[in-house]
Simulated scan of single mutants.
Amino acid sequence: MADIAALRALGIAPDQLQPEYREVLESLTEDEVRVLSQLKQRMDSVGDVEGHGDGGVFW
Rank of each mutant, 00 (worst) to 15 (best):
R34V: 11
G53T: 11
E32R: 00
I12T: 08
E23H: 11
G55T: 03
R22G: 01
D15F: 01
S45P: 00
L7I: 06
T29K: 00
V24N: 07
T29R: 04
M1G: 12
M1A: 15
M1H: 14
E30W: 03
F58T: 15
P19E: 10
D44F: 11
K40H: 03
L36F: 06
E26F: 01
D54M: 12
L10I: 13
E26T: 11
Y21D: 14
G55L: 07
A6Y: 02
E23L: 09
P14Q: 05
W59L: 14
R8H: 07
E26P: 07
S37E: 15
L7G: 09
L28Y: 13
A2M: 06
Q41W: 00
V35H: 00
V24G: 05
S27L: 02
E50T: 12
R42V: 08
G53E: 14
V57D: 14
E20K: 11
F58P: 03
E30A: 12
D31V: 09
E32K: 00
L36V: 05
H52G: 05
E32F: 04
E30Q: 12
G55D: 06
A13G: 10
V49I: 13
G11W: 11
P19Q: 01
E23W: 04
E20G: 00
G55F: 10
A5R: 14
M43R: 13
Q18C: 02
S45R: 09
G53H: 08
A6N: 02
Q18D: 09
L17E: 08
Q16F: 07
